[in-house]
Structure formats: structure tokens, C-alpha cells
Design a binder for these strands. Structure first.
Lengths: 191, 191
DNA sequence: CAATTTAACAGACTGCCGTCTATTAAAAAG
DNA sequence: CTTTTTAATAGACGGCAGTCTGTTAAATTG
């Protein structure tokens, strides 16, 4: 999927792609998403403007792709501490997410913002970032219900919206995402 | 506060302000926030570009101001059905918010997005829209605790973040905000 | 090797943003 | 009435986004 060398024509230069992603991520982390222009990315990467648009539709597209290779993807695997309670697992999950967001939380805010006025990017962002985390928490809560740690009549989809919503609400309103928040969220979910 | 006619110099023409707000709101409701340019607003309102920038710093500023005079402000008053339970009051509040968002929810999404990359507008948006609703729900939950409807050990700030977060999470992810959601949120809060 | 196909590149172009300049209009102050 | 002060206007400007054109480069196909 990453490279399709078959067929005629000059092949896509992966070095160009890598250079663009690295440059974009470096510039965004240094100056902030808003203050990095497409023009500055291609100029810094020493790549033609069109080569960027041949690969991505927008700055948001490019940055999401660059982030996906980086720390953002590391949280997306399910939690494996099955010896522990669901309560503890939720705290662990949230703490991990928050820790990774210490570096790229600001950028993530900008990507969420970009998704609001660009439905196509919104779908990609949802698939790459939102859905996997939604899945993890939902599965965790259903397992907790099966094991009796969570009462069977609790509304798991709503509880999941509570957890992710509290996270988004704090992030998008510039409030801190710290270990204290993680444990208080988990405490309220598991009475 | 709306007009300060005292002092020398030509007074601000309120007709120009009204025309800009009306035009902006009409255009945004018809074409969507993203597809309305500053240039089209001033052209349609037959007002000079600078007159807009003399009053607001950005399109987001203008549209928030225009919305604030409209339906958005109507929800901001506390709930008065004191004869009812806190559970019912929360459902009423959420249903009202969701109903008003049927018209301007898309625009609100765009304003939340704009706030992410513009701290100054973020503060204004928070003061005009976020804080008042946060206040209503928080007060409602504390009253419920005082009356015994909500257990005293429950974490009201977190519960408030749950409620608003679920709302934001659904809105920003393009999911429906309907009566069903309102009652399920309330059911989980007052379990 | 020659023809075909696709990538990379340089550069131009339109449209919009946010700012700035110069001019005219409408008020208070002397 | 004249001066001062601020608003409204018209229009220009530099910078960036996204698109497009033409040219060169690198691969497969015949």
C-alpha cells in the first residue's frame, strides 16, 4: 500500500514524501500549525509545490499523515494489562493519551478545527484518530460489563461519549489534560 | 455600551453595523461559514472593507456577534421549572440547546474551529457561549446535590464536563443532537 | 533503441486576506 | 465659521492558497 512500483511511468519518489512529512512536522512543532504555510513547507523541503498537492489535498492532510507515523499511532493499540481492573485500565489509557498529547496537543486542536470545515478531511481524521480510540474505550467498557465491574444497565455508548467528550472539551477549551483529570474521569465512570 | 455618542468626531453609523451583521448571518446560513468570504460580505452589504475591520477582527468575530443577537442568546437564561426534578430540568435544557442548534449548529462548529487557532477569539467565544452554559449545568447539578437528588460524593465539575463534552463530541463529529441523546445523557448523570 | 507513461519541477495565474494610504463626511470644540 | 477629531470610502499592496501549463526526468512497454 505504501508503494506501488508496478506499471509504467516514473515512480513516486518516497524520499520526497518523507522530506515533506518531516519538514511539515518540524515546522508545525516549532511555529504552530497556523503559522506554517504551504509555501514555507515546500520551500524548506526543497520540493516543488505540485509534488505536495500530488500527495495530499491540504496542509491538514499532510500533517495528519506525518503525525500518524509518529507518536500518535502508539496509543492506538489496545491495552494489555488484563490482570488489572477496567477502572485501572481506563486510567492507564487516558494517562497515555494525555502524555502523548503533551507534545502534539496543540497540533491536534488545529486538526480537529480543520476537520470542521472540510468533510473529506473530517472522514480521514475520524478514521485515523477518533474511531480507534472510541473503539478501545467502548470495548473496555463492554468487557467491564461482562465481568461485572460495570452494571449491566449502564449505557456504554453514552459513557464512551462522556469519556471522549470530556477529553475533547478540555482540549478544545485550552484546559489541562493531566493525570488528575484521568483518574477523576475514571472514578465517575466506575462509580 | 452599544453606542458612545459623546466626544468629538464622526459617530459610528449603527446602520452600517446592523447591515454587516445581518448580511453575514444570511450569507453564512445560506452558503456555510467556509464559503463566505469577507469580500463577499462587504460587497453584499455595500460597505467598505475597512468599516468591517474597524468593528471586528475577523469573520469569526463578526459572526459570533451576529449570532449572539439571534437565537444563540435565548438559551443562556437559567431554567425556571423549579417544580420539576433536576433530571427533568437537564433534559429540558439539553433539548432546548439542541433545538436551537438545528439552525446554527454548522456555524457553531466553524466558530469552535476558528477559536482553536485564534486565542483572542477563543476567549470571546468562551465568554459568550461556553461559560454561560457551563454555569447553568454546574448550578443545576449542585442544586441537585443540595436537594439530595444527586449523591454528595459525585464530582460535579467532571459531570459537567461529561455533559458538555458529550454534546461537543457529537457536534464536532457530525453526529445527531436529538431528544434521544438528551434523555440518555440525563439518565446516565442521574443514575 | 524508440514510444509511452507518470513524476518532479519551475513558474505563472486568480482570488482572497489583512493592512495601509488618501480622500471625503459628520460630528464636537474654539 | 474654522479647526479638530473620528468614521466611511475607494483603492492599492504584499503574501498565501490552490490550480494550471510547460519542461525535464525516470520508469515500463514494444
Amino acid at each position: 500500500m505504501t508503494d506501488t512500483p508496478s506499471g509504467p511511468g516514473r515512480p513516486v519518489d518516497q524520499k520526497v514524501s518523507r522530506r515533506l512529512k518531516e519538514t511539515a512536522l518540524n515546522l508545525v512543532r516549532e511555529h504552530g500549525y497556523r503559522d506554517v504555510s504551504i509555501s514555507s513547507i515546500v520551500a524548506t523541503a526543497k520540493v516543488s509545490r505540485q509534488s505536495l498537492y500530488n500527495r495530499w489535498n491540504s496542509k491538514a492532510d499532510l500533517v495528519l499523515d506525518a503525525l500518524a507515523e509518529d507518536a500518535l499511532a502508539e496509543v492506538a493499540h489496545p491495552i494489555t494489562d488484563d490482570g488489572s481492573t477496567a477502572h485501572a485500565a481506563l486510567v492507564t489509557f487516558l494517562t497515555q493519551v494525555f502524555a502523548h498529547l503533551a507534545r502534539d496537543g496543540r497540533t491536534l486542536q488545529s486538526l480537529i478545527a480543520a476537520a470542521q470545515d472540510d468533510p473529506e478531511f473530517g472522514s480521514q481524521f475520524h478514521a485515523a484518530f477518533v474511531a480507534p480510540r472510541e473503539e478501545i474505550v467502548t470495548a473496555l467498557l463492554y468487557r467491564a460489563q461482562a465481568s461485572g465491574e460495570l452494571a449491566p444497565h449502564r449505557d456504554v455508548p453514552i459513557l464512551s461519549a462522556f469519556v471522549h467528550g470530556a477529553f475533547w472539551y478540555r482540549l478544545l477549551n485550552g484546559q489541562p489534560l493531566d493525570a488528575d483529570l484521568a483518574s477523576r474521569i475514571a472514578d465517575e465512570v466506575f462509580r
